[in-house]
Amino acid sequence: MVSLLRTIRNLRRAGFKEWWRQMQYIGDAKAGTYIGADQFGNRYFENRNGEEEIPGRHRWVDFAQHEYHASQVPPEWHSWIQHIRKEPPSQDTVMQNLTPPWQAPYTESLTGTRGAYRPYNTAVPKIKAWDPKIAARS
């Protein structure tokens, strides 16, 4: 539950425009330190002040797109948000050196969209749909 004092404090820190945007998108007012951005334009934040945030919710992502979903977060940023890695990818030298140069760039999941993969079938169907023959009347 969000307290009124915390909401007012974050409204003053972030400004009215950003506060309103956060309330519309994530339903919570948050203010924190900007950590970095990814190739999709998503911005990542962290609030290290422990008593203001619920434990485990002090890192968050501000999605660039209005229609967003979890697959728009690249794996390296996901590991930082989920506390698998301590340092964000922009500051972690191990993460920067481990990414192989041959790896394809990350793309979001297109499942459920027009760009989703659809296999095609080359086999002849076992059941053929009925096609009515219309005869001309004389």
Rank of each mutant, 00 (worst) to 15 (best):
Q39L: 08
N121W: 06
G36D: 09
E108R: 14
T111S: 15
E76V: 14
A104N: 12
F45C: 04
N42W: 07
G15N: 01
L5P: 00
F40C: 01
Q65T: 11
A135Y: 11
D92I: 05
D38G: 02
S3V: 00
P74E: 13
S138F: 11
R118E: 09
D131F: 02
L11S: 04
P125G: 10
K17R: 08
S138E: 11
R6T: 08
H58I: 00
G36E: 05
A116P: 00
Q91N: 12
G32C: 08
A135F: 13
A136S: 15
Y34P: 01
P125L: 08
N121T: 11
P132Q: 00
R137T: 05
Y44K: 04
Q103L: 15
N121G: 02
I81E: 01
P132W: 01
T33F: 10
R57L: 11
K17H: 06
W20Y: 06
G41Y: 12
K86H: 10
G115I: 00
I8S: 01
W102Y: 15
P75R: 13
K133G: 02
P88T: 03
R43A: 12
T113A: 09
Y117G: 01
A64Y: 09
R48L: 11
T33L: 10
P119E: 13
E53C: 14
P119F: 06
V73P: 06
Y120M: 12
R118D: 05
S90C: 15
L5S: 11
W77D: 03
Q22L: 07
R43Y: 10
P132T: 01
L4R: 06
Q65F: 07
A29Q: 02
